[in-house]
Structures are given as structure tokens and as C-alpha cells.
Design a protein around this nucleic acid. Structure first.
Lengths: 230, 230
DNA sequence: CGATTCCTTGACTGACCTCAAGTGCCGTGG
DNA sequence: CCACGGCACTTGAGGTCAGTCAAGGAATCG
């Protein structure tokens, strides 16, 4: 059973707009799924049958070119909404980057519920508008920035989402839910270039890398400057 | 006075979701503006005070990097919605690419009206979700495709939006509302590269260019293949 | 018929990709 | 505990595609 009242994203996901009774009704339509790292929830081109909320973990949305190169289109964190309600097809593959839990709905059920709950749609509209703005800032990045700048931007965004102050308080630390290849797919570049850029940031003492996926940002200001260059 | 009943985008813009009475009320809040080519409606970073619909013409949404390079983030056609309701700031500049007419609202007015008209918000939600999907396909393009492929994709999209069959029925013709520089800003490349690619497409007999901004697509199939390459 | 603006073309450069070989990390099994 | 293999990341060498800089042509407008 889904105990929405105790859900960890109760106050972050779209459900927050609902009163207790409606939440209860929506909750009965939903279904919790555990995803292990790398597991695919929905295939690009499948009819979009699932709508969901990320409860725990990180998932990526991606698409691939005909020649088989993948581009990551978005990253969803706990509380974020995934899927495409209302008629259109999903053009994305949803893949768990870490162990994850999601709360899914059959699209038809969700659509109907949403149509009769304006407060839910309003919340979704705001989220979608925010997502649009966010995506547009990534377009700037993909379109014009150098490899150096892309990597710096990426690390800053990750720090913003996942970062914790280091014990000495002088930096921000986090563990990437991405391997190098996945970073490359986000930024539209190759794994080698990503690696070289991170190496250079390390040599320049802007970041440390205690483990392969661990990042400590040491000089946020300079990193920020790099991120804003072309 | 705004006579919404006779508006040319009456059945395309978000207003279509409203009944006659509500449309009338919304219409009284709105204001028509004529824009000449190149005129700016809203500056990047301004507090987003305007919400609007494009009635006629084509406008672009753009942002620029700190170093002064512009990236076009979106293109709005008649019936499309522009602006950012509900709280957040606009991060875009809105510029008319051709003579254009838009119907604008003060944001506060629009927000309040929308909040009390769920059918309007539903329509906006669908539009915004579509826009998001569309933007994601452009990310694929910006991230991974070659210059050749970008230009091919761009021309096909324009043909889809603006194309008319040629008199001999063997091609699709249209006049771009863009100069070369503007195309470059859409695709995240330089004006010289755009020019070279178009020249090559012309040499390969895939398109003709009767005038600087006129395009006739002669071999859609091959162009499509190019567009799908990397 | 200049003057301006926009587009095209050419030569050169450099950033990033490709291909290829290392290096380090971690789990498994001896 | 160490040897081994697999995998992910790093590093290097070389090539290519698009950017830069510069000049020349075509369209548009007074």
C-alpha cells in the first residue's frame, strides 16, 4: 500500500497541491517501483503509458540519434515529474542512474485525474514552465560553450543539487550519480574530452577528486567564471 | 478595442479554450501591439511583466552569453504563447523577426485570470509540454549534429512551418523570416559556416535559393537523410 | 549611382574527436 | 595476502571540422 502521508516527497512532488482526500484517491491509482542502477523504465518511442514521480535517487531522460549516439535531455531528482501526460508520445528513454524509487501511474488514469483537479494542473504547469526555462539555459551551453565551460557548468549544477559543505567548510563535496560516459552524454561531447577537462580542473586546483565519482569543489568563484565563458 | 471574436488566432491561441464570455473578459485586459522587424518586446533580465500571444508574424526568443554571443532559444508563430507567467523572471529577449502583431497582457492580470480558469491552464499546460518536447529535440541537434545536419534540420523545420508546394508541385518553397546571422544564432554556429552549408546544399541540387531569403526544397528525402546524420 | 548591409568565399588555425595504448581501481579466487 | 581480470578512467598522437580573420561580391536603399 502507498502511504502518501509519509511519502518523503509529500511536500515536493506535484501531489503537494492536493488535499488529504484527493491525495488518498491519487495514491490508490499509483504504484511504487524500485529501480536498480541502469534499469530502464520507459523506452524512447514507446507509447507514453507511464507518468511518474521520482521519490528517491536520480534518473535520466535520454534520446539517441539514428547513428546510436545518446544525448541526455534531462535529469530528474526526487520530487520531479517524469513522463508525458495528455496525448503525445514520449520521445525519451528513462533510465535510473542510481538505485531509485518512483511512483508511477497509468497515463489514462493520471490524465483523467489531472483534468478534474485544476490545482494539480496548475502545479504541473509551473513545474513545466520552470523545466522549460532550465532547458533553455542548457541550450545556451550546448550551443556556444567550450568543453571547459561545459564541464564547469555541469559540476556547478551538480554541486547545487547534491553538494554538501566539506568538513573544513572551505569547499563543496558530492558524489556524482554519473560515470564519465554519462557526463559526456549530458554535455554532448566525448568521454575523453570530459576526462581531460576534469584533469585540468584538478591540476588547476579548482576541484579535487578523492574517488572516481567524488568531486570536491575548492574554488567555486573561478569555476563560476569558467562556466560563464564561451 | 480588441474584437476577439474576429481574431485570426481565435482557434489557435490559448484563448480557444475559453467560452465567449470569458474571452470577452480576457480580451478587455489585453492590448494589441504592432512590432516592426527587429523591434524588441522584452529584454532578457527584465522582470517578466508581459504575457502575450503572437497574432501575426514571427518572433524569436533569445539569450546571450556574457561574451555577447546570442543563442536563439525558440521561435514563436501565430497562435503561440510568449512570456513567463507565475512568478519567475524572464531570461529571454523577445524580438520580432518580421512585421508582427501580438496581443499582450500585464502579467499580474493574466496570472490571476489563469488561476481562475482551469481550462485555460490546461491548454497552456499542453502547449508547454509540447514546447518542452520540441526543445528537447533541438538539444539533440545542438549537442551532436554536424553543421550540415543542423542546417538540413533547420530548413526542414522551416518548410514544415512555412512551406508551400511550388507551382510545378515538385518542391516546397518558403521565404525565411531569418537572415543568415539569425540562422547561425538558432543553430549555435557562425554565419560563415551557415553560408557554406547552404552553398553546398545548392551545389548538390537539394535546394534552390531564388532570393537571399527564399528557399525551395528540391530533394526532401535526401535532405531528411542529412538531417538525421550526426 | 554611391553607400550600406548582407552574403559568399578563401586561407588558416585550433578545439575537439578518433583511435590507441596505458593506468588505476576493485572484486574474485587462489 | 597477493595474483589476476575486468572495467572505468586517463593520457597521447594525429586528423578533421568548424571557427576566425580577411576580402570580395551581390542586393537594397536613398
Amino acid at each position: 500500500m502507498n502511504s502518501c502521508e509519509h511519502c518523503t516527497v509529500r511536500d515536493k512532488a506535484v501531489c503537494r497541491s492536493l488535499n488529504a482526500e484527493d491525495m488518498e484517491r491519487l495514491g490508490r491509482m499509483g504504484r511504487h517501483q524500485k529501480l536498480s542502477r541502469g534499469q530502464v523504465l520507459q523506452w524512447e518511442g514507446d507509447e507514453s503509458l507511464l507518468i511518474g514521480n521520482v521519490i528517491e535517487g536520480v534518473v535520466k531522460l535520454s534520446a539517441s540519434t539514428r547513428q546510436g549516439k545518446d544525448q541526455t535531455l534531462g535529469i530528474a531528482y526526487p520530487g520531479d515529474f517524469i513522463g508525458r501526460p495528455f496525448g503525445a508520445r514520449s520521445a525519451q528513454t528513462v533510465t535510473a542512474l542510481s538505485e531509485a524509487r518512483v511512483c508511477t501511474f497509468r497515463r489514462a488514469d493520471f490524465d483523467e485525474f489531472a483534468r478534474t483537479h485544476p490545482e494539480l494542473e496548475h502545479d504541473m504547469l509551473r513545474r513545466t514552465l520552470d523545466e522549460l526555462d532550465h532547458l533553455r539555459s542548457w541550450m545556451l551551453l550546448l550551443g556556444h560553450k567550450s568543453a571547459q565551460s561545459k564541464v564547469a557548468s555541469f559540476l556547478l549544477e551538480m554541486a547545487h543539487r547534491l553538494g554538501e559543505p566539506t568538513s573544513d567548510g572551505a569547499g563543496v563535496a558530492f558524489t556524482l550519480p554519473f560515470g564519465r560516459q554519462e557526463i559526456a552524454e549530458v554535455l554532448g561531447m566525448t568521454i575523453e574530452t570530459v576526462s581531460r577537462q576534469i584533469t585540468q580542473l584538478r591540476n588547476d586546483r579548482l576541484v579535487e577528486t578523492p574517488g572516481q565519482r567524488d568531486i570536491v569543489i575548492r574554488d567555486r568563484a573561478t569555476l563560476q567564471d569558467l562556466a560563464e565563458m564561451e
